Amino acid sequence: MKIELKGRKAIVTGSTAGIGFAIAQGLARAGASVVINGRGEQRVAAALVELRTQLPEAEFAGVAADLSTAEGSALLAARINDADILVNNLGTAYVNGFFDQKDEEWLDLFQLNVMSGVRAARHYAPGMVNRGWGRVVFISSESAVNIPKEMIDYGMTKTAQLSVSRGLAELVGGTGVTVNAVLPGPTRSEILGNWMVATAAEQGITQDEAEQNFLKTMRPTTLINRFTTTEEVANMVVYICSEQASGTSGAALRVDGGVVRSIF
């Protein structure tokens, strides 16, 4: 299968590192022009330099904007008026204690993980519908299904993304626009990878050993017995953004290494 996205413009939110960066690479390799996004100018500029060095024939642009705010989302919309592909990757997670959390922490995470994608889809999906082709992808998590007790707020936001994704797919049904969610499992991304590096240093073990300990204690149902790579997650996203994936919409597609013990 040869995926060809030449002539398509893609926006990948939260894409200066980790899964988002790998998705930007994958879409560019398939021929799409790609807009990356991060909160700060320096991170965006550094990511653009790296992408342009790796893929000198590809077309990249960058927008520094805090999409957890309505103002930041409006800035992105003003800078990039339309897109054929929208990947709502922006998100984060914090280990916390449910009984100690403040309301503001819940609301801040919801703004970042959920409302950033809601605002972006609200702006870009109508244009896709008018043109008769488009792809919207929400990067959720296996934590949407297996709610982690140490990150209940995070699990809630990832479940909310599934609701938004399915509802939007219903709304744009029959227009040539597809909307799907991708559910990564434990991944060697910037956030979880850095946590494992810090854990390894603290315990005097290797990162591989720290990851194995995490899987044994926190995700013992894994079937691949390792963290997935950002490229493996990106491969699913690039496929679902392709012409070949035109028959898939309203789906929640797992790249979780088999962590979720379900056939659906």
Results as ranks from 00 to 15, higher is better:
Asn130Gln: 12
Met128Ile: 04
Gly97Met: 06
Trp133Cys: 06
Phe98Tyr: 11
Arg119Gln: 12
Asp100Met: 05
Val118Lys: 10
Phe110Glu: 02
Asp103Ile: 03
Lys102Thr: 12
Val118Asp: 01
Phe110Cys: 11
Val129Trp: 05
Gly134Pro: 04
Trp133Leu: 01
Tyr124Thr: 01
Ser140Glu: 03
Phe98Trp: 10
Ile139Glu: 05
Asp108Ile: 03
Lys102Gln: 14
Val129Ala: 07
Lys102Ala: 15
Ser140Val: 06
Phe99Cys: 02
Val137Tyr: 07
Ala121Cys: 15
Arg122Leu: 08
Glu105Cys: 01
Ser141Tyr: 06
His123Ile: 03
Lys102Asp: 14
Gly97Val: 09
Arg135Leu: 01
Leu109Val: 08
Val136Met: 05
Gly132Asn: 11
Leu109Glu: 11
Gly134Val: 00
Glu105Gln: 05
Leu107His: 13
Pro126Gln: 13
Arg119Trp: 11
Glu142Gly: 02
Gly132Ile: 07
Val136Pro: 14
Leu112Asn: 14
Phe138His: 03
Phe98Gly: 12
Ala120Met: 11
Gly132His: 05
Glu105Asp: 02
Ala144Glu: 12
Val118Cys: 00
Glu104Gln: 04
Asn130Met: 14
Ser140Phe: 14
Ala120Cys: 07
Val136Glu: 15
Asp103Ser: 13
Met128Arg: 13
Asn130Val: 06
Pro126Met: 03
Phe98Gln: 03
Ala125Ile: 13
